[in-house]
């Protein structure tokens, strides 16, 4: 990876912060009910391809299965904030690796259902290469940066006053872990099941019969 790209990747968190700082902060504005509202919990299976950069040159690409999760909350109609992570087990000819990450994630919803996510956090790579019958293992902890996109396909009938719901979420993304001695660049696709809790009724614009339901 050249220096320019490294600098771009390193400056990504700063750009994300700047972007977030431009957000308006709502106080007590009541919101129209939406499906992507409240807290979200998303988990599912992924499949990825990894390319390693090592002191001996590039290794890969080769692939394997993985697991990912996301956890957070909608801040506004268009932005979410949360954490996420995942693990990949990759197997190739005479080489294998275990890659994982845990990141802060910023999500943008340009339209209903669709989301675009950028994340930064801590990642690890445990890369094993078999040379002449001996396992050579290198590994590292480092910064990890992820961009991904997905679509929440909600189950159930459309209810204009329903906040939250359960969705099937196909997604695709790229995870970058530039570090020495072993960098990892992962392309992944996956499907998650996502549960949006929705907002409590006191924060929603609702008709009288729903807004004034007894407290539980």
């Amino acid at each position: 990876m050249n220096g320019t790209l490294k600098r771009i990747i390193r400056s990504a968190p700063v750009a994300a912060l700047g972007f977030l700082l431009s957000l308006p902060a709502a106080a007590k504005t009541l919101e129209r009910p939406q499906r992507q509202q409240g807290y979200y919990l998303s988990a599912g299976a992924t499949s990825g391809m990894v390319l390693h950069g090592t002191s001996d040159g590039r290794r890969g690409p080769y692939g394997g299965p993985g697991f990912s999760f996301r956890l957070g909350e909608s801040l506004t109609r268009h932005f979410d904030l949360g954490v996420g992570g995942g693990v990949f087990w990759m197997y190739g000819r005479n080489q294998r690796s275990l890659n994982g990450n845990f990141s802060l994630e910023f999500t943008f919803h340009p339209t209903k259902g669709l989301w675009l996510m950028a994340g930064a956090g801590l990642g690890f790579t445990d890369f094993t290469r078999r040379v002449k019958g001996i396992d050579a293992i290198t590994g590292r902890f480092s910064g990890e940066y992820t961009v991904a996109a997905g679509w929440d396909l909600f189950f159930g009938q459309r209810d204009p006053y329903r906040s939250g719901g359960v969705a099937l979420t196909p997604m695709v993304g790229v995870r970058l872990g530039p570090a020495s001695p072993t960098s990892a660049y992962i392309f992944f696709v996956g499907v998650n099941v996502t549960w949006w809790t929705g907002l409590p009724k006191n924060k929603l614009l609702l008709p009288v019969d729903r807004a004034f339901q007894p407290q539980r």
């Binding site: 912060l17 977030l20 700082l21 957000l23 902060a25 709502a26 106080a27 909350e73 909608s74 801040l75 506004t76 904030l81």
Partner: peptide, 9 residues
């Protein structure tokens, strides 16, 4: 920065 929903960054 104070974000909505009692988040801050």
């Amino acid at each position: 920065y104070n974000l909505p929903r009692n988040w801050s960054i």
